[in-house]
Amino acid sequence: MQNLLEDLKELLQQDERLVVDGKLLKNKIIELALQLDTSLIKILLKSASIKQYFFQDVDGILVFDKIKFQKFVTNKAFLPDSYTSFKNKIGLIEDDEYMNEGREVVLAWPYKDCVLEGKQSEEDEKLSEFFWNEILAPDEIDKLLSVKVMTSFKEYTSTDIRPVETFGKELNMLIKGNNLLTLHSLKKRFSDQIKLIYIDPPYNTGNDGFGYNDNFNHSSWLTFFKNRMESAYPLLSRDGSIWINLDDTEVHYAKIVCDEIFGRENFIANVIWQKKYAPQNDARFFSDNHDHILVYAKNVQYFKLNLLPRSAEMDSRYKNPDCTSSN
């Protein structure tokens, strides 16, 4: 078994598509194997032991057993720490190549091709999280994101609280729970119907409750954020929009992620709003007194702001008369 492992690793090193920073990418190996990539198969056929183990002779024709190969590669003894096809660095890519400049770019980071099953809550703070790879763990992801049963609905009125047996769209809902699972549970009933989504995710400042235990805290946040943006998108109506409140820590990365999911052409604005009115005297550099709200439309062609009418009090602020000219 050990000799077979070493032989396979040595062979796979010959394919530059499978190597990043001197390390083999398990996810990419499996992807190409399942696609019956001819270059990969030619490399595997170079070794007699590999040929004997992963190929069957059927009337003189060698047939590649991709299922057996997949099971072998997914074994923890083979590349135990490699479960993402993205490099262990964050940067802009185009066609899977990292780049410095380009017109159309997307952000890449470790675990981008995963769903983060967060385990943190007030009761079980900082438990280990799980990254389910979209290619290697589709069953686990489907189970995680399957529709969940919501219970214990209550109606709050101005005078009392009473249980709710059934509810229609005329009732507003406040749902307590994991927001990723909730978004997926709402899809069947509310897809393409939500006019506005406002989300205030953790800022990833180190003291805002986003304290995951892995060594890629920034990557964990990006995966956390991407999962929720992808889940929110199908809920928006054609004229709907999403408003995302963040601070300077992650907003610029979030903008690129949202460009990829919602489309750069559907970006409406980065609304800067003042959150503090007194200077922060203990600030190390500048006093941070603002936050950002990224605004994206589902389809900019149908997006329309609901403008408020001007009041008499607003009009009174203008002292100079409007200038009109005629030729």
Rank of each mutant, 00 (worst) to 15 (best):
D214R: 11
L222Q: 05
L236F: 03
D214H: 14
D214L: 07
F224M: 04
F225L: 00
H218L: 15
W221H: 13
Y233P: 01
S231M: 06
N227T: 11
S231D: 04
S237G: 15
S219E: 00
N213W: 09
W221N: 06
N213H: 13
N215C: 10
F216V: 01
R228V: 08
S231C: 08
N215Q: 15
S237F: 06
T223V: 08
M229N: 12
P234S: 07
E230F: 05
Y233F: 14
F216R: 07
N227R: 12
G240R: 10
F216S: 13
D239T: 11
T223G: 05
N217D: 12
Y233Q: 13
S220Q: 02
P234I: 11
S219C: 08
K226F: 03
S231V: 04
N217V: 14
T223P: 03
S220L: 05
G240I: 02
L222D: 03
D214S: 15
L222K: 10
D214V: 05
E230V: 14
N215G: 14
F216D: 13
L236S: 00
N227K: 12
N217T: 14
K226C: 06
R238W: 09
P234Q: 09
D214P: 07
F216E: 14
I242F: 07
P234C: 09
W221L: 09
D239L: 09
N217I: 14
F224L: 05
W243G: 04
S219T: 03
M229P: 09
F216C: 11
F225C: 00
S219R: 03
S241I: 00
F225W: 01
D214T: 15
F216T: 12
A232F: 06
F225I: 01
D239G: 14
N217F: 10
R228S: 07
D214N: 15
L236I: 00
W221I: 04
N215D: 15
L235H: 10
L222N: 04
N227H: 12
F224K: 01
P234W: 11
K226E: 03
N227Y: 12
P234M: 07
Y233N: 00
R228W: 08
S241D: 08
H218E: 14
E230K: 13
G240C: 10
L236P: 05
F224G: 01
L235C: 10
